[in-house]
Every structure is written in C-alpha cells, then in structure tokens.
C-alpha cells in the first residue's frame, strides 16, 4: 500500500560495499515507507543477497560509501543484534543449521531480545510456548520442529517456514526476505506467501528478493526494482515484473553496457 505521507522506514543512499576488497554494491538507492511491499529482482550474482547482508550487518562485508538511515538512526553504526532488536529482519536465502541448539530455546531468546528493546516483559518458557504455538499457525508448521535443533535436518521448505515463524515472533518493521520462495513446491510457496501477507500491515514494510514472478502472483508488490551489477537499474510497479518475465534480462545487459561501456561486455 503506497501512502506518500507514511513514515520513511528505510532510506538507502548511494550504498557501496565490498567483500574481500572486491566491490559488489556500487551505488544502491532505495527508500521504503511504512505499508509498502518492495520486490528486488535480478540475475544471480547481481548483488541482491549482498545488499540484504549489508543491511543486516554481516561482518564479511565492508561499506565503502553511502548511508543507510533506519527510522532516523544511522543503521550502519549498529551491531547486527541491535539492528534486529529495533525491528530489522532478514530472512536468509540459506538459513544455517545449528546442531545442538534447541529451536525452541533459540526462538525464545530471540523473541525476548526484541521484547526487551520494546519495553515488554520477558516471556518465561510457559508464556513463550503459548505464543509460539499461536504463531506456528501463520506458517502451518508442525510443533515437532520446536523440539529439534535449529534448522538441523530441515528440508529447504521447512527452513524457509522456520524463517517466517521467526518473523512472526519478532514482528519486525522492515522484513527483508531473500529468495524465500526458492526451493519451495507450490503448496509450501502458498503457505509462505500467506504467512507474509498475514504479517504485512500499514506499520511495517517488506522487501522481497526473488527471481520469480510466481511469488509476486501471491504477494502483490507496490514497487519492483531490477538490480544489476550492484545497483538498481530500473524501478517500476508490479507490471515491471511481468515485463521481465516476458522479455528476460537481455535489456539489462544493453543498459549496463551503455552505463559503463568499458567494464561490461555484451555477448
């Protein structure tokens, strides 16, 4: 839902970032207001996951220029845990498995960290069990997954559902979902999309990173951005995604060649 007067939640200006001295992001600009759903599309390797990890504060990435403002604060100054506590959420493309750490315990500690920041009282194990069972319904997840180690031996689809369960518990203001649709069969995709739609509201915003129109058939974006070579090349409405589906990414190469003729070769 686009409301021009809605508060600005995330403002990314000319963001440059590198990994191991290799520049990956080369001037990303993106503003997100409350209530909006954004989709970022683009070829493999265009920098989508890098953008999400930089926003979440992954230590392997170095910001070399630009700024990110989150609700009036300098996001880049904050530790990853602090960013999460104030309402930034990253749903990982590849959620890690953590053997030996109970999923339930992990979810409880995470939820309480966010609650403490918001001034809510800490939930003991019993109160938390009630909450988590209610939130499990958002992604139709079997409570048996709570008793296992974090993501250990989960299928691809189960890991993604576990991500959305975390989102349901943490109630973020800005949720970045990195290829949450990849590796899902059509039923799982519907469940995950349903979950995201349930959680989206006028106070929060969602940034979907995806390759496929099929997710956007289920979650309607207000804006679609096309990313290439570490920047956003074009922004449009939901029809841009449909156009991409028809035309593919060949025009992206041409446009890139025009922008930086010396660095991009056109096949």
């Amino acid at each position: 839902m686009i409301r021009p007067d809605a508060p600005l939640l995330l403002d990314i200006c000319d963001l440059h970032a590198s990994v191991e001295d290799q520049p990956i992001l080369k001037g990303v600009n993106l503003s997100i207001r409350a209530g909006e759903i954004h989709a970022v599309m683009g070829r493999n390797g265009s920098g989508k996951s890098t953008l999400s990890k930089v926003l979440a504060g992954h230590p392997a990435y170095t910001v070399t220029a630009g700024s990110v403002n989150y609700r009036g604060a300098d996001l880049l100054e904050l530790d990853p845990e602090q960013r999460a506590r104030i309402g930034l959420f990253l749903g990982f493309q590849y959620p890690v498995e953590i053997p030996g750490v109970s999923n339930l315990e992990f979810l409880r500690v995470a939820t309480n960290s966010r609650r403490a920041e918001r001034g809510d009282e800490e939930l003991d194990t019993f109160a938390f069990e009630d909450l988590v069972h209610e939130r499990l319904k958002v992604v139709q997840m079997d409570p048996a997954f709570l008793g296992r180690s974090v993501n250990e031996g989960f299928s691809g689809g189960e890991k993604k559902r576990n991500e959305i369960l975390q989102m349901a518990l943490l109630e973020p203001l800005v949720a970045i979902l990195d290829e949450t649709d990849s590796g899902l069969d059509i039923d799982a995709l519907r469940i995950v999309a349903d979950g995201v739609n349930q959680l989206a509201g006028p106070e929060n915003a969602t940034l979907l990173i995806t390759h496929y129109q099929r997710l956007l058939d289920l979650i309607t974006p207000d804006y679609v951005h096309v990313m290439a070579a570490g920047r956003i090349l074009r922004t449009g409405g939901k029809e841009l995604a449909l156009e991409l589906e028809r035309t593919g990414y060949d025009w992206v190469d041409l446009e890139l060649a025009r922008l930086e003729p010396e660095t991009v070769e056109v096949a």
Binding site: D79, E81, R83, L90, F106
Partner: peptide
C-alpha cells in the same frame, strides 16, 4: 551471525553455540 541477526548479543550467541556443541 545468524543468531545475532535475531537480536541475540554476540556473547550470548557464543554461549548458545558452545552449549549446542557440547549438547550433541
């Protein structure tokens, strides 16, 4: 990083991982 990105501080995250490692 996964634990930190869920709001769990670095010290507590290390402790959770150490406990998980032993718990196995």
């Amino acid at each position: 990083f996964y634990l930190q990105s869920r709001g769990i501080g670095a010290d507590q995250a290390s402790k959770l991982l150490l406990r998980g490692y032993c718990e196995e």
